[in-house]
């Protein structure tokens, strides 16, 4: 390759192969307005021509809670760790929904945005990031629902827990975002050429939910001797910690959280490497 002369300054050089991790964070920062607009678009476009609009965010967790209450509590009679069942299920569903929404939405980044990607360049990572961000808004709405349920129970039980453990909530949300984003972009990169993963993700998320203490407490599984089955799951410590943060009951598993954190960092790193490799040529294979 010929070396450009000193005085020759080129703003950009388009070349075939990229470095291992070719991410330009400054460029992503330059496109922050786009990120905000994508979040706005996701939000306002999703409820155009609906009557209930964002209220739909309430309906899904309410019905799921009702279903869990019936199946897990009434039929299977699984205890909920001294927590009222409704707030118990709802807290699990709220944080789980955030993860699963992030994962499923980012995992289709390339395929569902092929139209835009094929025509114009912008840092591709802006899209999955905006997905994660717009899901935070949805999470916020569902968290408000959880909060109102908590307040309702607080009035009934004359006890409301609000302590320093609430400070953990943002950390846990960020961890969920990282995991959803990391896994999501890995899958979206793989699906550009081989759609097999696209089929997989649909039921994998549902199965994963049952392997995560969403509808049951981890202590129950441990008591039954199946604790090991769930402890490999990096999502379990996050869910347990979320309940600890909200209700102030039980204990927090620091080792588990460290395990999850390490897992998330590795997944995000691998995701970025694969994503930055695929984003350059995916238009040819998608």
């Amino acid at each position: 390759m010929e070396q450009p002369l000193e005085k020759e300054h080129w703003d950009q050089i388009i070349e075939p192969r990229s470095k291992l991790l070719d991410l330009n964070f400054k460029e992503i920062w330059n496109y922050r307005d786009l990120l905000v607009l994508f979040v706005k678009r996701d939000f306002s476009a999703a409820y155009k021509q609906t009557v209930l609009g964002p209220l739909w965010h309430f309906i899904q967790p309410i019905f799921t809670t009702a279903m869990f209450l019936f199946i897990f509590r009434k039929v299977a009679n699984i205890p909920t760790d001294d927590i009222d069942p409704i707030p118990f299920y709802m807290s699990g569903i709220t944080i789980w929904n955030y993860f699963s929404n992030c994962l499923t939405a980012t995992s289709s980044t390339f395929i569902s945005n092929a139209g835009i990607f094929g025509k114009v360049y912008f840092p591709r990572l802006v899209l999955p990031l905006s997905t994660v961000a717009s899901n935070i808004v949805k999470f916020g709405i569902q968290f408000l629902l959880l909060l109102s349920v908590l307040i309702f129970y607080a009035i009934r039980n004359h006890h409301f827990y609000f302590g320093p453990s609430w400070l953990l909530i943002p950390v846990l949300v960020i961890m969920m975002a990282g995991l959803g984003l990391g896994l999501g972009i890995i899958i979206s990169s793989l699906t550009t050429k081989y759609r097999d993963f696209n089929v997989l993700i649909g039921f994998a998320v549902t199965l994963l939910m049952y392997a995560t203490p969403v509808a049951y407490p981890l202590s129950y599984l441990k008591k039954k001797g199946y604790g090991a089955w769930v402890s490999w799951n990096p999502l379990s410590p996050i869910l347990e910690a979320f309940r600890y943060a909200v209700f102030g009951k039980g204990s927090i598993d620091i080792n588990g959280l460290l395990y999850s954190g390490t897992f998330i960092i590795i997944v995000v790193f691998i995701g970025m490497v694969i994503f930055s490799k695929v984003e350059r040529t995916f238009m040819d294979t998608v």
Partner: peptide, 28 residues
């Protein structure tokens, strides 16, 4: 290739300044 929606197999392109493309109408 110029608008960076795909990469070349070989060779390189050097560019000065910002590129905007209008490959088809109503992108996005």
């Amino acid at each position: 290739i110029l608008s960076r929606t795909t990469t070349p197999t070989t060779g390189q392109i050097k560019i000065r300044g910002r590129i905007a493309s209008l490959l088809e109408v109503g992108t996005g």
